[in-house]
Amino acid sequence: MSVETSVVDSIELINCGGCKKRILEEEVQKDQIVSMFNRLWHKEHIECVYCKLQIPDGRYFRSTVDPLKPSCYACHIQTTHPACVGCSLPVIERGLVAFDRLFHADCFRCAICNKTIPQRKGFYERDLMLYDDVCYMMYIKDAPWTTN
C-alpha cells in the first residue's frame, strides 16, 4: 500500500460515507453520527442504495451491489430472497417447492377453484398448472387433450 492510498483511506474514514463531507467533532458529540460498515455516516445520509429512501430506524443491511452501501430491510429482502411463482413476492421464511418451483403456502392454489391446496394433501400438475384432487378428477383427468 502506498502512502498516497493510506492518506486517501484515512480521509474516507473521517468523511461521511453518504455525503463525503468531513465529520465534525461537534456532530459526534451531538450524536448525529453512526458507524456503519467501518465508516462514519451522518444519520440523515444513510439511504438505501436501491430505493434511495432514508433509513432512519437502524435496520440497514449491506447491499449486494456495493458492500460499502446500505440497503433498507424491504430492498434487502427483495434482492436476497427467492420469489414465489404464484405472486412474485419474496419467500422470507418457509415455502413449498413443487416441480422445482417455489411457492408461499397461501399461493399454492388449484388452477380451477383457486382454493389453497393443503401441504399434506395430494395435488396434481399438468402443463405447469396445479390442481387439487377434486378438480383434477372432475375436470382434467379424462379431458380429451389428456394423454393416459
Score class of each variant (00 low, 15 high):
41 W>M: 03
70 P>S: 03
1 M>S: 10
50 Y>K: 04
94 R>K: 15
65 V>G: 03
1 M>L: 06
99 F>A: 12
11 I>K: 01
119 Q>E: 15
102 L>P: 05
51 C>V: 12
135 C>Q: 02
58 G>P: 01
98 A>Y: 13
67 P>H: 05
67 P>L: 06
36 M>L: 15
92 I>M: 04
34 V>L: 05
129 M>I: 02
144 P>M: 12
130 L>I: 13
23 I>K: 08
100 D>E: 15
146 T>M: 14
117 I>T: 03
13 L>D: 14
91 V>C: 04
40 L>M: 14
49 V>F: 03
81 H>D: 01
88 S>Y: 11
67 P>W: 03
97 V>N: 01
116 T>H: 01
121 K>L: 10
15 N>Q: 12
86 G>W: 00
50 Y>Q: 06
118 P>S: 11
38 N>F: 10
20 K>V: 14
121 K>C: 09
11 I>A: 06
95 G>E: 10
23 I>R: 14
126 R>C: 12
98 A>T: 11
7 V>S: 13
8 V>Q: 14
83 A>H: 12
96 L>Y: 09
100 D>M: 09
62 R>I: 10
93 E>C: 05
45 H>M: 00
23 I>H: 10
107 C>D: 14
34 V>T: 09
33 I>T: 05
113 C>K: 02
32 Q>Y: 02
30 K>Y: 09
77 I>R: 03
67 P>R: 07
31 D>G: 04
98 A>G: 09
39 R>G: 05
